[in-house]
Design a protein around this nucleic acid. Sequence first.
DNA 1: AACTTTATAAAATAAAAATTGTACACATTT
DNA 2: AAATGTGTACAATTTTTATTTTATAAAGTT
Lengths: 180, 180
Amino acid sequence: MNHEEKIEDVKAQFVEKITDNMNAFGVSTSIGRVLGTIYMHREPMTLDELSAEIGMSKTRMSQVVREMIDMNIAERVFKKGVRKDLYQVEEDYYETFISLFTSTWQKAVKRSRNFEHRLIKKLDKLQQQPDLTEEDERDINDLLEEIKEWMDYYDWIRRVTEFFESGEIFEHVPKKRGGE
Amino acid sequence: MNHEEKIEDVKAQFVEKITDNMNAFGVSTSIGRVLGTIYMHREPMTLDELSAEIGMSKTRMSQVVREMIDMNIAERVFKKGVRKDLYQVEEDYYETFISLFTSTWQKAVKRSRNFEHRLIKKLDKLQQQPDLTEEDERDINDLLEEIKEWMDYYDWIRRVTEFFESGEIFEHVPKKRGGE
DNA sequence: AACTTTATAAAATAAAAATTGTACACATTT
DNA sequence: AAATGTGTACAATTTTTATTTTATAAAGTT
């Protein structure tokens, strides 16, 4: 193996480690690999290039890239004179990391809050019923209390995602240990 | 449907929402459901109770509970006179939420850092070689720089998990909006 | 207009993950 | 010691997810 090959080899291993890592953050292996590949390539890539480099079908590349766009960690870019679609990834991996969970978490939180609003309404109505036993009434109140506490929790998660998205996190956990 | 049944129904829907949510945080559906079920039951539960309540095989319950213990979101508790194993979940769901990602992230970060240390050594050795072209040399330096930046990034993630685990996050994103 | 190229949809296949059923070891009770 | 209850290892099955193959529509080129 000559020098150049060795360098390429290190690069490949590095991409594989990025893949592994993103995997730990809940991203599928293929997405991690495509991201790492484009990132290390420094330039936007086409589906065919990705397919050749990674050794997977073009169709799969198309699927993966679309998922990535939905997740907000890749985008299609235009280049004059190039017919094939070109895809680029966010270069700031801190941002990528943040995107990864904020979008998922926010969606989940939103769903939950809507849903629990409905549950509360249901329980409120139930509470109006004339023929409730003491125990029923106690159960309903406990449940209402519980649900309200969870709504606070969901709101906390929402605020945590904002804390990250706004970049405030970096004031308290700076990127480098010694300071910029 | 009488009142009691309606209350049970709301409870079940609530558990299902907890399940959904944990799912968004990367936890398998069954784990979420077991957690929600024990949580809403207020008391530690046995495998047989879980199996009956959730409608899944006891074997599966055993597997799920073990996973949860590994993840640090459940524990076996002892109760005098009870022969079956009893399992309890963390009641503070903020803590559960934090446990969920800190352990995974920390493990991934540790793996990456070890690995990249080895890559750096490899590159350092390569850099000593006498017959390098200019371009080889430049490539090696770029790669070394890149890897070092990623090591900072991994360290940042480690510090973020500490920020959560230590509870510092609550100083900046308090549990309730108005303050305690 | 005929021919290519490109991306992707839809169906088919392969691979991985979740779930169950059976078997068994270990402990407790009789 | 025999009988019963309990948890789990292991193999088998089902379900879900990832991936490829084939087919097609839309755009670009000749």
